[in-house]
Each structure stands twice: as C-alpha cells, then as structure tokens.
Simulated assay, not measured.
Amino acid sequence: MAVGRPGRSLTLRALLPNAITAAALAAGLTGIRFAIAGEWHLAVYAIILAGFLDGIDGRIARLLKAQSRFGAELDSLADSLSFGVAPALILYLWSIQDLPRLGWFASLAFAICAALRLARFNAQIDTDDQPHKSAGFLTGVPAPVGAGLAFLPFYLWMATDMAEFRNPVFVSIWLAAVGVLMISNIATFSWKSIRPRRSIRLEVIAVFALAFGALLQEPWWTLAAICAIYLALMPWALIKYGRIKRQRQAA
C-alpha cells in the first residue's frame, strides 16, 4: 500500500496573526448582538476591543515575519464588518431607526464608505506612487478610527445623559460626515508621522499612563476627549503635509 506524503503543518507563528484578526471580527459581530439586546455600552466596548485587536494583529505579523496575502485580505474583510457594518447597525438600532429612511441611508452611507476605503487601500498596496504614505501620512480617516469617531454622540450621551446627543437627525448627519472623511483624499496622521522629540519621551509616557487611568475612571469622557483631540489634529496634519509637499516640489 502506497504511503502518502505527510501534509505540511502550520506553525503557531503563522496562525497567531490571523487568529487575532478573526477574534477582532468576532468582537465586531458580537457588538451587533449586544445592540440587538439593547446593551449599548457592551456593543460599543465590543467595537473598541475589535479596534485594539486590529491594531496589534499587523504588528504581530511583522514581528513574527508571518505576513501573507491571505492575512491582508482577512484583515480587510474583518475591518469592513467590524468598523463599517457593525457601527452602522449599532447606531441605527440605538438612535436613527426613528428616522427609517434618512437613518437607514446614513447607516448605508457609512458602511459603504468603510468598504470603499478598504478597497482603495487594498488596490494601492503595491502602488509605488503614494504621496501621503511616502510622507508618513494616511489618506482619509482609517476605518477603525472612523468607527471610533462615529460613536462620539454615544460617548457624550453616556457621559451627560442628555437626550440631544441621541437625536436621530444629529446622529444621522454625523454618521454620514464621518463616512465622507473615511473616503476623502485628505492627509491624516499615522503612527509613523507622530514622532515626539527624544527630550520629552518621559512626558509622553506619563501622558499615556494618565490617559489609560482616565479611560478606566471615566471611559466615556475620555473617549470623547480622544475623538476631539483627533479632530483638532486633522487641520495640523493638512498643514504639516502641505509643508512637506512644498519642500518636495522645491527639491
């Protein structure tokens, strides 16, 4: 009897990044389940957890030298569901279902914009001519950040208990606006472009530690403050990228 060739085994090093991506996908979909049950804070926590997992899977893949085309495609699929479909449905169920037509179109717009942004990102992976990327910037608001910004009315509602932040018209307009920011061509900061001076490294560490403590003590105010800081930094990113662009043209 002929003996077949033993199959190739997979190492934990190759599986770990994709397993983390799958966990992020599970967290995003579980957020929808919590929203259906009316457990809004758990739904948002699930999306935040998905964002954390999405932030580390790529770094772990590079650290372990386990990058693959399969992993990149899985990551984009997970991002589309966790940061496009899930936030749109959660916010629809939380507030904007009171506007069946306008609210649903706002949810559709956000989910579609997230998918389009991720499709653009995949299409440009092998493209050399990427002015924003070469300067250390991103094009448009990343999908995980867009999901975080989309929940800003919810953060404020949880922090203040003011019904105005749950107004379906306000939430619909805000959700659609964040979707537009995701597919826009504006330069936004990436982790690579934020490089604090070595002389203030201890102060930066202290700020991160305080922010983490604030997140534990006052999660909703802290998340709202993070969104406000990111929005405030967007004009600075445009100015900084414009300066780099002019320097390149002069050179």
Rank of each mutant, 00 (worst) to 15 (best):
I186K: 08
G84Q: 00
V141T: 05
S68K: 03
S80L: 14
Y241G: 00
G146C: 10
V145N: 04
G148I: 04
L202I: 15
N167D: 15
P235T: 02
A46F: 02
L108H: 01
I229W: 11
A37P: 05
F70P: 00
A187W: 05
F52R: 03
F154C: 05
N185P: 10
D129K: 13
R62C: 12
I48R: 06
I229D: 00
A228L: 15
A35V: 08
S172G: 12
L223Y: 12
A147N: 03
A228P: 03
V3P: 04
F137I: 07
R197M: 10
A250M: 13
I36H: 09
A177P: 01
L149P: 06
L149F: 05
N18P: 01
F137E: 08
I173Q: 10
F170G: 09
P87V: 01
T160G: 10
I32R: 03
I56P: 04
M158V: 00
G148N: 13
H41P: 08
A187D: 09
A225N: 03
H41G: 11
S80W: 11
D79N: 07
I125R: 10
A211E: 10
M162N: 13
A35H: 06
G51H: 07
P142T: 14
R246C: 04
A86H: 02
L74M: 15
G140C: 01
E218P: 03
H132K: 10
S76C: 13
I194S: 05
A119E: 04
I36K: 07
I226H: 02
L181Y: 10
I96W: 15
F212A: 14
F121I: 08
